[in-house]
C-alpha cells in the first residue's frame, strides 16, 4: 500500500517565484522534494494550496494530513512525524542516517534557523514599508477572497510586528526612503514654497544637503547587517567545507530549512532588496545556487 501524504500550503503570488509565499511551506516542500529524491520516489505526496488555515492545529500552514489520519502543524513537528509514523513507507526520513549527536545538533540548529530566519523575513517582507505594500500585500490579494483580504494580511503583519518589536527597527524600516520628503508649503501662495526648495537645492549644491540622510542610511544598514550576521555567520561556520550542513554525504531536514529561508530572501522580487544584498555577500550564496535547482525544479503539481 502506498502512503498518501497531503501537504496543505499557502499559494504563491506575483513577485514570489516559488510555489508558496510562506517560508515554512517552502521548507516543507524542500523537505519532501529531498525525501522524494533520496528514497527513489517511494513517498507519495501531494501539495494542496489553500488560503483558509483556520482548521490547522496552530492556525497556520503548512499542515500535513497523514494517512494515519493525523493532522500535524509546525514545520519541525512535520519533520518529526514523517520520521516516526508507521503508515509512511519504510520509515523513510531524511534524518534517519543520523546518530544521536547529529540529531541533537539538527534540533538545535533548526531552532536557530527558525527563530532568526523568521525574524529576518518578518523585517524584510512585512515591516519594510515598501516591500509589504508593493509585494507581500498584493501577493496575498491574488489568492484571498475579498473579505479575507481585509483580515489575513493585516493579521500576519501584526504578528510580524510583535515578533520583531524588541529589535526596535520598525521606525527605520517603516519609513519610505525614495519618495520625496514632505514639501514645505508657502503660506502666501498656498502651493509648494519655491524659496524653501531653492534654499534646499543650494545646500545640496555645496554638498551638505543629504548629509543627515546619508548618515542615517549607513546606520540603518549597519544595524540590519548585524541582524543578518547573527543569523548567517554561525551557519557559515557550521557548513565549512562540507556539502551539506551536517554531513558531506546526506542532506537533512536542516538543509531543507536553510534552503527555504535563504532562497526566499534571495529570489523574492521586492523594491527594497536590503536583505538580499547582504545575503549575496555571504559564502552561503554559492551553496544555495548549487542546491536550489535540485529542490524546487520539479515539485509535484497542485492536487
Amino acid at each position: 500500500m502506498t502512503s498518501r501524504l497531503n501537504l496543505k500550503i499557502w499559494p504563491s503570488g506575483d513577485g514570489f517565484p516559488f510555489p508558496s509565499l510562506n517560508v515554512d511551506c517552502l521548507a516543507a516542500i524542500a523537505y519532501f522534494q529531498l525525501l522524494w529524491r533520496t528514497t527513489d520516489n517511494a513517498v507519495n505526496w501531494t501539495i494542496i494550496s489553500d488560503w483558509d488555515a483556520s482548521q490547522s492545529p496552530n492556525g497556520q500552514f503548512p499542515v500535513l494530513s497523514c494517512s494515519c489520519e493525523k493532522e500535524i502543524a509546525g514545520i519541525l513537528n512535520i519533520f518529526q512525524h514523517v520520521g516516526s509514523c508507521d503508515s509512511i513507507n519504510g520509515h523513510s526520513d531524511l534524518n534517519s542516517w543520523m546518530n544521536e549527536d547529529e540529531l541533537a545538533d539538527c534540533t538545535a540548529w533548526s531552532s536557530h534557523v527558525l527563530t532568526l530566519g523568521t525574524q529576518l523575513l518578518d523585517l524584510y517582507l512585512f515591516i519594510t514599508y515598501e516591500n509589504y505594500y508593493s509585494t507581500t500585500r498584493p501577493a496575498y490579494t491574488a489568492f484571498l477572497p475579498l473579505y479575507a483580504n481585509y483580515t489575513i494580511p493585516p493579521a500576519h503583519q501584526k504578528a510580524a510586528e510583535k515578533r520583531t518589536e524588541h529589535l526596535g527597527l520598525a521606525t527605520i524600516l517603516g519609513e519610505i526612503d525614495d519618495e520625496p520628503r514632505m514639501q514645505p508649503i508657502s503660506l502666501r501662495t498656498g502651493g509648494v514654497d519655491p524659496s524653501a526648495s531653492a534654499s534646499a537645492s543650494f545646500t545640496e549644491k555645496i554638498g551638505f544637503g543629504n548629509r543627515k540622510e546619508i548618515l542615517s542610511k549607513a546606520q540603518k544598514r549597519m544595524r540590519l547587517e548585524s541582524i543578518v550576521a547573527r543569523f548567517l555567520e554561525p551557519l557559515e561556520e557550521l557548513l565549512g567545507k562540507k556539502r551539506y550542513f551536517l554531513s558531506n554525504k546526506s542532506p537533512s531536514s536542516l538543509d531543507a530549512l536553510v534552503l527555504a529561508y535563504l532562497s526566499l530572501i534571495l529570489e523574492v522580487k521586492v523594491p527594497d532588496r536590503w536583505a538580499a544584498e547582504i545575503v549575496e555577500n555571504s559564502k552561503l550564496t554559492d551553496w544555495i545556487k548549487r542546491e536550489a535547482p535540485h529542490i524546487y525544479g520539479n515539485a509535484p503539481n497542485k492536487g
Binding site: P57, N58, Q60, A73, A159
Partner: peptide
C-alpha cells in the same frame, strides 16, 4: 506570537 492558535501537543513535542 509564533502561531495564531496555541498547539499544546506541538508545544510539548
Amino acid at each position: 506570537k509564533s502561531s495564531p492558535r496555541i498547539d499544546v501537543e506541538g508545544l510539548y513535542a
